[in-house]
Amino acid sequence: MSAAARIKTIVANLLFAAGLPVLILVAWNALAKKPDEAVGAEKFYPDPVTVGRAFADNWIGPAFAHEVLPSLYRLGIGIVVSIVAGVAAGTVIGLLPWLRELTEPVLEFFRAIPPPALIPIVMLLLGITDTMKIAVIVSGAVWPILLNTIDGVRATDSIMTETADAFRITRWQRLWYLVLPAASPRIMTGVRTGLSVALILMVISEMFASSSGLGYRIVYFQRNFLIAESWSGIVLLGLTGVLLAAIFGFAERRILRWYHGMLEVERG
């Protein structure tokens, strides 16, 4: 493909991807009233320009460091702790059948508890701190990762295991070169679910008890009838989700390159 043709495809792809968002913005603009024309309930649905202005005023600049970074920090730590704890515990439980039978009913119980219900208790235990918010994030995001890791580790192919036995592969090499890679497609499925749970819990934990962060600001705006500002926070949450998905997609393509390649070959 020539350079010109390649640029053409890229532009075409961009236009295609941007098409629907632009359409939605145009429709939103046409349906919503300007602030000075809005009557009654119409005030609750500001037009995109007003929301955009509120976005720039409230989230860009110093507010970014004060309101957005703390949220992202808690989210990041929460996700890392969930992945490390979920994969580590899941691997051990998946490898030991007796431990699996022992823990299964307990895991089912804890998994079934909606994490927001834990917030008041965690608040008592840990106070209104970052640690409390991270604990809430982990209490929800760790489950899909843990359970998927257990299943992935359990499902390690018997012949692959026998191969490792026959060649006397050592325990750590077996973990690193067989068990974890074999479980990695399932682990990544768990991480993907864990990420969206983590984002939800980040917001909820900040809505309950906080003096900074996205969730705190959105509730603050709402209570002070700052409607456009409230909406702009929701837009920012959506963008954060998109960013998370992009980072995940990048990592997944690298880690599971072999897996996607293999599936492609199998499909012919």
């Binding site: 012949i159 692959m160 070169y177 890679p181 897996y259 293999m262």
Partner: peptide, 8 residues
């Protein structure tokens, strides 16, 4: 197919 490790 099941004895070789596809990720390596």
């Amino acid at each position: 197919g099941r004895s070789l490790y596809p990720w390596l």
